[in-house]
Design a binder for these strands. Structure first.
Length: 747
DNA sequence: GACATATCTAAAGCC
DNA sequence: TAGATATGTC
């Protein structure tokens, strides 16, 4: 066996050396997937003498691509410009070369989610739509769905018919496409879509790329959507040297278009495909693996496979039911300190708290903050989506492309220039009437004369700043340009004058962004190049984030289950194991969605290497209301052999053995759960599920009855305004009444 | 037009 | 509860 391949196990070795023809690698959690893929690339280059530039390896995230590139470099050296990149950046690279064939200017801009939203809002205004019904996010999701399924605006218009909401949506879609086209912009979906169109319309272009990419690899295949699948199928062409790696059990992105069918039916689409399963897990203890398996095996639509591990059983998984969400946070904090005391080799960075929703982080931040426990939160907001960064990016885009109306609108009154809604509309009207872009309109006398004297001065200054920097951009460094922009637009001064904590934070971010630019310039000068604004922005177009998770910082990591995919920690906590929270109440109507939640649970559990702690809170405050909760059905799916824990009601008795463990939620066998809490959530929309009857220890209670809770004392049952049975406790506020709730007794 | 106050609503987030 | 947006006031 070749030296560098000797670390691979038998299955991994098979996968790494099977190079020709279609191959599906089913790689379970922690099975050494990335290692196998990188070794496969190294094998192709070193042993098969395949030209590195004939290999295309696509991933979903920049982080994954970067990691893969780094590991390939370690194995077989650096090949600059090798095609190891995300779907979107591969397509961007192709389109930069070929966009003119599709009638686009090659220097098109890429609109991100924020830009798209701005376009959608403009459309809503123009069509005078009711934003309640046609919310920007809704319109955009319809457009995105269509694009992912390669349905054009005109196709959709035909499909939509001549009336009803679909007709309106079709007009939105059409206008959206017109606006992007006239701004010379593509959105993220377009990057894939236009590349597919390019290949379909120009067979010669396709065959050139087919010749180039003789070997194709796709990571996280379970997350591909229909269009991405089509793209790689086109590229794989007749050679069919395509290797896809994925795990159907880790498909947690169906809600944004991932099609799990792509992995389930790979063999059908590529007849003769080899399938290799990587089932040995190198990450977790036996108990963790087995417990995770006992949950995931409840899913129906999945490939049959079972992870195993050569490591010991390890400790059992622990479950704790806390009194409330605050106590849950205290419990976890105390547990972290205790574990660290008992095992001095553990440091804070070995701990992660994985929750279902971002709002859950608050309790932990409060608690950890007061205890002085170091933590880092991976928030949902990306660096580049922050307002101040986005504003600066828009200024820079305007310098590159003064025609970019969406960017101009964004920064027109930022900082405040006295050019508000009314003036903005005037500018747009003038632009439309004269066929000008907005910057031209803004600088015209017609517009300027209609402004107040302050606004007039500001407008002239803005137009001049953009125009002169646009001319000068190649005579100055990007850093200098950035500074000039901050100064001349008055952006920095406006922030500094605010003297608020928030504004200071924004200033910090703006300086942080400057160091990003400086870093890029340094990289460039080392390679004896000068960084141009154009190349800087180009590199940024698809960068999702300055990776804000620092695995080396010695702090506890707090993040959602979704963002934990691909990571691992010695000790993992999964709080909020409650019906309605996890699984999310929005997933509980349809069996399919519930399966995705279950996969999410599986992903979370398999992040743990040594210890796994699950917890729930009996009372949780959500949306300013405190509710009783039921335990998550996933808890009862875990085989009790691997689990130890207490139900809160028995806490006084202490040391409850695991066979006494009995979560209160019930599975109705129909792959949906009937829960009083869920019913309460749904009460406004679904009359049939309103909780109008509650039974406590076999005794029915009705409004007006007195009930007693072991901790909250006596309360009265009432029917709340949303028609849900509720108990009012003296001094304890109002709580929704959950059916069969053990600590409540009728008195 | 800018700022203050009232009202509404609530998942996950890759490129 | 808290953030985002709609409405009201100077």
């Amino acid at each position: 066996m070749l030296d560098y391949l000797s670390k691979l196990n038998e299955q991994q070795y098979k996968a790494a050396t099977c190079v020709d023809g279609p191959l599906l690698i089913l790689a379970g959690a922690g099975s050494g997937k990335t290692g196998t893929m990188t070794h496969r690339i190294a094998y192709m280059i070193k042993e098969k003498n395949i030209n590195p530039y004939n290999i295309l390896a696509v991933t979903f995230t920049n982080k994954a691509a970067g990691e893969m590139r780094g590991r390939v470099e370690d194995l077989c050296g650096r090949y600059p410009g090798m095609w190891i990149s995300t779907f979107h950046s591969s397509c961007l690279r192709i389109l930069r070369k070929e966009a003119d064939k599709l009638g686009y200017d090659k220097n098109f801009v890429v609109y991100d989610t924020v830009d798209q939203k701005a376009v959608a809002k403009a459309i809503i205004k123009e069509l005078e739509l009711d934003e309640k019904i046609f919310a920007p996010a809704y319109i955009l999701s319809v457009i995105s769905d269509n694009k992912e399924n390669q349905i054009s605006a005109s196709d959709f218009l035909i499909k939509a018919g001549s009336f009803g909401p679909n007709k309106t949506l079709a007009s939105c879609y059409t206008m959206y496409e017109e606006k992007l086209k006239s701004n010379n912009a593509l959105d993220f979906d377009d990057l894939i879509l236009k590349t597919v169109e390019l290949f379909e319309k120009f067979p010669d272009v396709l065959s050139a790329y087919q010749n180039m990419f003789k070997y194709i690899m796709v990571d996280e295949y379970q997350d591909t959507n229909m269009l991405q699948y089509k793209l790689i199928k086109l590229l794989a062409g007749s050679t069919k040297n395509i290797c896809v790696v994925g795990d159907d059990d880790q498909c947690i992105y169906e809600w944004r278009g991932a099609n799990i069918q792509n992995i389930l039916s790979f063999e059908v689409d590529f007849p003769g495909a080899k399938i290799i399963k990587l089932e040995q897990n190198y990450r977790s203890t036996g108990n963790i693996i087995n417990a995770a398996h006992s949950v995931i095996e409840n899913n129906k639509g999945r490939k049959d496979k079972k992870l195993w591990t050569a490591s010991d059983d390890g400790e059992k998984i622990e479950y704790y039911r806390a009194d409330d969400d605050k106590e849950e946070a205290r419990y976890i904090a105390a547990k972290i300190n205790k574990l660290k005391r008992e095992d001095p080799t553990l440091s804070f960075k070995d701990f992660a708290i994985l929750y279902r929703t971002n709002v859950q982080s608050r309790r932990f931040e409060e608690c950890f903050g007061s205890l002085g426990l170091p933590y880092q939160v991976l928030s949902g907001l990306r660096f580049y989506d922050r307002k101040e960064i986005k504003d600066m990016l828009c200024y820079m885009r305007l310098i590159l492309n003064p025609k970019d109306d969406i960017s101009l609108i964004r920064v027109l009154n930022e900082p405040k220039r006295g050019i508000g809604d009314k003036s903005q509309q005037n500018i747009q009207t003038v632009a439309r009437l004269n066929g000008w872009n907005l910057l031209e309109a803004l600088g015209s006398d017609v517009v300027l004369d209609g402004l107040s004297s302050r606004a007039r001065d500001e407008a002239i200054n803005l137009v001049n700043t953009i125009k002169s920097l646009s001319v000068e951009q190649n005579n100055m460094s990007v850093s200098d340009l950035y500074d000039t922009l901050l100064f001349k637009t008055g952006y920095m001064k406006a922030l500094e004058d605010m003297h608020t904590v928030e504004a200071d934070g924004r200033v910090d971010n703006i300086l942080e962004f400057k160091s990003v630019i400086a870093e890029k310039e340094k990289e460039c000068s080392e390679a004896d190049e000068t960084l141009t604004l154009e190349s800087f922005m180009e590199g940024l177009a698809l960068v999702s984030d300055i990776d804000n998770h620092d695995p080396d910082a010695d702090s506890v990591s707090l993040m959602t289950l979704h963002s934990a995919k691909g990571l691992e920690f010695k000790v993992v906590f999964m709080p909020g194991m409650e019906m309605g929270l996890f699984p999310s109440y929005r997933s509980m109507d349809k069996g399919d969605n519930l399966e995705e939640e279950r996969r999410l649970c599986y992903v979370g559990m398999t992040r743990a290497k040594e210890r796994l702690f699950l917890s729930s809170a009996e009372l949780r405050m959500l949306y300013g209301k405190t509710d009783f909760t039921s335990e998550s059905p996933f808890l009862s799916e875990i085989d009790k052999k691997y689990l130890t824990g207490h139900a809160v009601y028995d806490k006084k008795k202490k040391n409850i053995s695991s066979d006494r463990f009995n979560p209160v939620s019930k599975y109705n066998g129909n792959d949906s759960y009937v829960s009083p809490i869920a019913a309460a959530y749904n009460a406004k929309t679904r009359a049939s599920s309103i909780v109008q009857k509650a039974t406590l220890a076999g005794v029915e209670v009705l409004p007006g009855d007195k009930v007693e809770h072991e901790k909250f004392g006596v309360g009265t049952v009432i029917k709340s305004e949303d028609n849900v049975l509720t108990v009012v406790f003296d001094g304890c506020g109002t709580k929704n009444l959950a059916k069969d709730l053990a600590p409540l007794k009728k008195v």
